[in-house]
């Protein structure tokens, strides 16, 4: 019933904005369509390019938003993207403990579990336990870096290119990069 309550609130708010001429229904519909048109496949292309082009990777880590615009010719609005790289000895994972901030303009709609109170509360207190539940076993000697998107930045993880993918081209590698790998609760594998 809570969902229906929020639905009613959202509708009332949207109608009030339209009635006052602040936004039109058409503008809202257009933004919704843009958002639903974004999928993790876009992020996968960014990651794969970084795997294949070290100079691109350098630019991506220095300024994520500029590097995404350069590669995808995509309207990402005011997105301030920070890309955090998994390297031997360091694994990154993303959360928004205060609400559900997520790089929607690049990856689209977040999964429900990302927005759940359980994930948000637990991944900061016991990231290793949560990663274990996702089926992710970290190599010994790996430190976990949790990133809490509390303000204006949005994050994706640049995972490591999987061992055994050496014979694959860039497009095939991009297909290995899952949404969960870019959140940091998984790593790309040849089985995915």
């Amino acid at each position: 019933m809570i969902d229906r309550e929020y639905e009613a609130l959202e509708a009332a708010f949207r109608e009030a904005l339209a009635a006052r001429g602040i936004v039109t229904d058409a503008e809202i519909a257009e933004r919704v369509e843009v958002l639903y048109g974004r999928t993790p496949e876009l992020g996968g292309r960014v990651v794969a390019r970084a795997w294949f082009d070290p100079a691109y990777k350098t630019r991506l880590l220095a300024d994520g938003s500029a590097a995404v615009r350069e590669l995808l010719d995509l309207d990402i609005g005011t997105l301030k993207l920070v890309v955090v790289e998994n390297v031997p000895g360091v694994h990154n994972v993303i959360v928004c403990t205060l609400c559900s901030c997520y790089p929607r303009m690049l990856l689209g709609v977040p999964p429900d579990w990302y927005k759940s109170v359980t994930y948000r509360a637990r991944v900061v207190r016991d990231p290793r336990g949560v990663l274990e539940e996702f089926g992710l076993a970290l190599p010994p000697g790996t430190a976990v870096r949790v990133h809490d998107s509390t303000a204006d930045m949005r994050y994706i993880v640049l995972p490591a290119r999987p061992v055994g993918s050496e014979h694959l081209d860039e497009a095939a590698c991009a297909a290995l990069v899952t949404r969960d790998a870019m959140i940091g609760v998984a790593v790309p594998s040849l089985q995915s």
Binding site: V124, R125, R128, G129, R145, A151
Partner: peptide, 24 residues
């Protein structure tokens, strides 16, 4: 930040170097 979480994680390896980044 989470001393009690660290106790829980005590059984897990390597958690000594774990960090959390927050925008402030």
């Amino acid at each position: 930040v989470f001393p009690s979480g660290a106790v829980e994680a005590g059984a897990r390896d390597d958690s000594d170097h774990d960090t959390i980044d927050v925008e402030l």
